[in-house]
Write a protein that binds this DNA or RNA. Sequence first.
DNA 1: CTCGACTGACTACAGATGTAGTCATCATCT
DNA 2: AGATGATGACTACATCTGTAGTCAGTCGAG
Lengths: 122, 122
Amino acid sequence: MAERISDAEHAVMEVLWRRAPLTAIEVSDALADERNWSLQTVKTLLGRLVAKNVVAHEADGRRYLYRPLVEREDYVAGESQRLVDRLFGGRVTPLVAHLAETQQLSDKDIAEIEALLKALKS
Amino acid sequence: MAERISDAEHAVMEVLWRRAPLTAIEVSDALADERNWSLQTVKTLLGRLVAKNVVAHEADGRRYLYRPLVEREDYVAGESQRLVDRLFGGRVTPLVAHLAETQQLSDKDIAEIEALLKALKS
DNA sequence: CTCGACTGACTACAGATGTAGTCATCATCT
DNA sequence: AGATGATGACTACATCTGTAGTCAGTCGAG
């Protein structure tokens, strides 16, 4: 049932995750710098997200307030999983290895991750 | 210039990355279990990949041999970067943190990553 | 009450994507 | 030489995506 969220839709979701509920206008304003969309475009995207059941819209007088129905956490988890599955055979270690090699990790980054791992090793 | 590769196209690329050059038929056969595509479908996807300049086709008698023009490494790097940018503000550390928490990393996994990081810390 | 502003609903449309059929051509078997 | 099979080229078509215009209803100002 977890409908796929397109790129443009994702931008809208990010706004709602940051602050919700919002009206269509508010969402549009929040996107003003990033994307150069007309209000109509934002409304269409909101409509599609509602149709996909990932955003709820409740009437507030004569306009709607939109709020996300899925947690950002869940979305991020899903997308990350997709990547890991598609490109790394479902294994996280190769991904981390890849990132470690490709990206310039500062010593601070490395220390941070090491600390994190240590914490996991209960 | 790096045209975007769709999901279905990616499946074809994986085959070519594993072994190349291949004919359309061979690619189709290699995909037989995973996806249930007709030969025509595979040919269309190959055609699109050629159009996108990520696959080369050279004549071999009266059929074509297809070979990838982009390295898997580069594709993986690009896609990973996209994810990191879209979901983690371009920072790798939060992604690793997320993965570490979400996935069940075995002690062996953790040890592996730790070793990797240690190697990086010149 | 009437008119305009605000807002959602509906419609549009080009390009991408997933999936596949049909046509033309060349090689080969008989 | 004609029939048959293999193979790429071209065409098709529904759906999804990105982007946006137009219509219609309602609330507030005059």
